[in-house]
């Protein structure tokens, strides 16, 4: 297991967890989602082949009412 920060909260995840894995845990939505790891955008096409490292700060964002 490794420790990451997911949307601001500490989280233990198995080794070899991909961005795609973590997104599917957070939301069932398939559109309108973006991910940043350590404040860098991970393109959707790279989700499946991007492994999360220990200490990674992962943010999963979506559009909400505002502005």
């Amino acid at each position: 297991m490794i420790s990451i920060t997911l949307n601001g909260s500490p989280r233990e995840i198995p080794d070899n967890t991909t961005v795609e894995n973590i997104v599917s845990e957070v939301t069932t939505a398939t559109q309108g989602i973006a991910v940043a790891v350590d404040e860098n955008v991970v393109r959707r096409t790279d989700w499946a082949n991007t492994l999360l490292q220990s200490g990674a700060r992962v943010d999963v964002l979506t559009a909400v009412q505002g502005g």
């Binding site: 949307n7 601001g8 957070v26 939301t27 939505a29 559109q31 309108g32 989602i33 973006a34 943010d59 999963v60 964002l61 979506t62 559009a63 909400v64 009412q65 505002g66 502005g67």
Partner: peptide, 17 residues
């Protein structure tokens, strides 16, 4: 129309999209 970008949370609904 404008929307804001926020972290997905349990009470986030994708319905605005």
């Amino acid at each position: 129309t404008t929307v804001a970008m926020r972290r997905v949370s349990a009470d986030t609904h994708g319905s605005i999209f």
